Every structure is written in C-alpha cells, then in structure tokens.
Simulated scan of single mutants.
Amino acid sequence: MKLSVEISKYPLHQDYIPFIKDFIDRLNAHEGLKVITNTMSTQIFGDYDLVMAVLSREMKRSYEQFGKAVFVCKFLHGDLSPADA
C-alpha cells in the first residue's frame, strides 16, 4: 500500500533552520522514498510501512538531538506525488 505525507517541522528554538535542514536531509537519505521539499512543507511518498518507519525513527531522532519541536502532518492514502517529480 502506498502513502503520501505532508509534514512540517517547527523547532522550538531561536536558530531553527539547521534543525529543519537536518531532518529533511535525513529523510532524503532513505532509499525507496520520494521526498519533495518546498518553502512550506516536505512531502514524502512511498510504501506505507517504509514511510511510517522512517518518520517514526527520524522524528524520535529529532527530539533526542534537538529537543522540543512541533510536527504537523497530513497522511493520504496512495501515491499522490507529482508526475514530473
């Protein structure tokens, strides 16, 4: 089963950009995922089990490394990635 996720990370830290960039870089390092980032959010597309496992692992790592953050997510059934991405 395929899954599409839109996620935004809001670190509760004054110097937030490195925290967001690190999270996005880690998502991009996982094979089997299609990751598209824009100025408002990051979209992740792939197999349901892989997407959920990666998000669980990387969100936990973010909390452990950087402390408090807010994650806002939307989950949609299927692969809704743009055809040209």
Rank of each mutant, 00 (worst) to 15 (best):
K21R: 14
R61I: 10
G46Q: 06
T42D: 04
S8H: 08
Y48K: 13
L50D: 01
M1W: 01
A83L: 15
T37D: 09
V70I: 15
F75R: 02
K60Y: 10
T42M: 03
K9E: 01
D22Q: 14
D84G: 01
L33D: 04
Y48C: 08
N38K: 04
A83P: 01
P11N: 08
R57S: 14
D25A: 06
I17G: 00
T37G: 09
S8E: 12
Y16P: 01
F23W: 08
D25W: 01
D22A: 15
E31T: 12
E6K: 13
V51G: 01
K74F: 00
S8G: 10
S41G: 00
N38M: 05
R57V: 07
A69S: 15
M1I: 09
Q65T: 12
D22T: 12
K74R: 14
M52E: 09
D47I: 05
H13L: 05
M59P: 00
M52I: 14
V35F: 06
V72G: 00
L3I: 07
D22C: 09
I44Y: 02
K21T: 14
S4H: 08
L3S: 05
V5R: 03
V35H: 02
P18T: 07
L55E: 04
H13M: 04
Y63H: 13
D47E: 15
D79C: 05
K21S: 13
E6S: 15
F23G: 02
A69N: 11
C73A: 11
I20A: 10
M59Q: 14
C73R: 06
M59A: 09
D15Q: 12
M1T: 10
F66M: 00
L3R: 03
E64C: 05
L50M: 07
T37M: 09
C73E: 10
I7K: 02
P82H: 12
